[in-house]
Amino acid sequence: MLEFIRCALEAEGVAHARPPQWEVGDDWYVTARPAMDGLRIAEKSIELLCAPGLHSPTTAYARALNQAVWQERDEGSLAERLEPFKAKFLAVARRSLT
């Protein structure tokens, strides 16, 4: 679970650093691609190793991060769009530890 959290925070940083225009191979992409690959692997480890109740919020948060990194930005702040997914994941993760 800690690896997923680390990867999610890295993906958030990549999303915040996303330039208005980017291309495969540019500096931002060279950072973004491995960060998102790591997130996907960490997401799958949650699915494999953690309680089933954690799967859905983990997947939802990972998908929101994926969209934040690769899709065009909408109105509103990135933090506001990610916060509900992040909060849900963290709440369920905390409960799973007790």
Rank of each mutant, 00 (worst) to 15 (best):
P19S: 05
P19R: 03
P19D: 06
P20A: 10
Q21F: 12
Q21Y: 13
E23A: 07
D27T: 12
W28D: 09
T31Y: 01
A32Q: 04
R33N: 15
P34Q: 05
A35N: 07
M36N: 05
G38Q: 08
G38L: 05
L39D: 02
R40Y: 10
R40H: 14
A42C: 04
A42P: 05
E43I: 04
E43N: 11
S45C: 08
S45T: 12
I46Q: 00
E47Y: 13
L48M: 14
L48F: 14
C50E: 15
C50Y: 13
L54W: 10
H55L: 09
P57F: 09
T58Q: 01
T58F: 00
T58D: 02
T59S: 12
T59F: 09
A60Q: 11
Y61A: 02
A62D: 08
A64C: 05
A64P: 04
A64I: 01
L65D: 00
L65Y: 00
A68E: 05
A68R: 03
V69I: 04
V69P: 00
E72W: 07
E72C: 07
D74W: 09
G76I: 12
G76K: 12
S77A: 10
S77K: 08
S77Y: 02
A79V: 09
E80F: 06
E80R: 09
R81S: 06
R81Q: 07
P84G: 05
F85Q: 04
F85D: 06
K86A: 00
A87R: 13
A87T: 15
A87L: 12
K88I: 12
K88P: 06
